[in-house]
Amino acid sequence: MDIIEAKEVSFEYVRRDEEGNVEGTTRAVDHVSLDIRQGEFIAILGHNGSGKSTLAKHMNAILCPTEGTVWVDGKDTRQESEIWNIRQSAGMVFQNPDNQIIGQVVEEDVGFGPENMGVPTEEIWERVEESLKAVGMYQYRKHSPNKLSGGQKQRVSIAGVLAMHPKCIVLDEPTAMLDPNGRREVIRAVRALNQVEGVTVILITHYMEEIIHADRVFVMDQGHIAMEGTPREIFSQVERLKALRLDVPQVTLLAYELQKSGIPLPDGILTREEFVEEVGKLLGK
């Protein structure tokens, strides 16, 4: 069962001059088709301006396609009457945690979504508890969000989405503003949601290391899907990624540098453990 299906989707922004007259249009997404199955961990890469955030905003009906169709959990996103159901199926987490948290206390913030959906009070508290536990923030439930670190705030944002019991979470650069520890915490929480709770994850990021565990990677360029494959398939193509203004994880790059000087390491090494093992093999250890 596909949780998200996009067929020939294009999206055009209308550019206006100072008086508001239409100057022209910019095609941010250009004939994109993709299927995302329930329970997958999907990563979307792409340089600034490649159209990845615009595409992501189609996945919970913040934007509707200019051409083509997006179905979220079987519902066409252009159907106004389904918009709340769609947003409940596919939640979204943004870059800046400070723009997403509204509650004075962590547990209130997390309860905001289900409350708006009309969930009975008893159940709201149950949902708040399980969501905060899923992201490892339960012990902070009585805290003020202002006093939390960036990584903690971002995990509260994720819990807020989780409390709406979505089938799918779209995260648009959730770690861009965080320190190394915050990044680790958030990525760990996201992976747990996917593996333990079975929530479909769509992660947009500029940090290559964060997506080595993804099931599939899409690379966007000029509104198109330029590459698609497993992390290993994608990161084996170092030069191609560089041409798309992207990068590979440092361990992959190190292996690539050594390959260039004639050391026969395999393509697409993604983890430290793999690297140590492959180097050991070559040296007969």
């Binding site: 190394p180 520890n181 440092q250 190190l254 430290r272 690297f275 140590v276």
Partner: peptide, 15 residues
């Protein structure tokens, strides 16, 4: 203290 070394440093230590 919530920081890290560059990934290369970890690779070299593992080796």
């Amino acid at each position: 203290v919530g920081l890290a070394a560059p990934q290369v440093t970890y690779i070299m230590n593992a080796l």
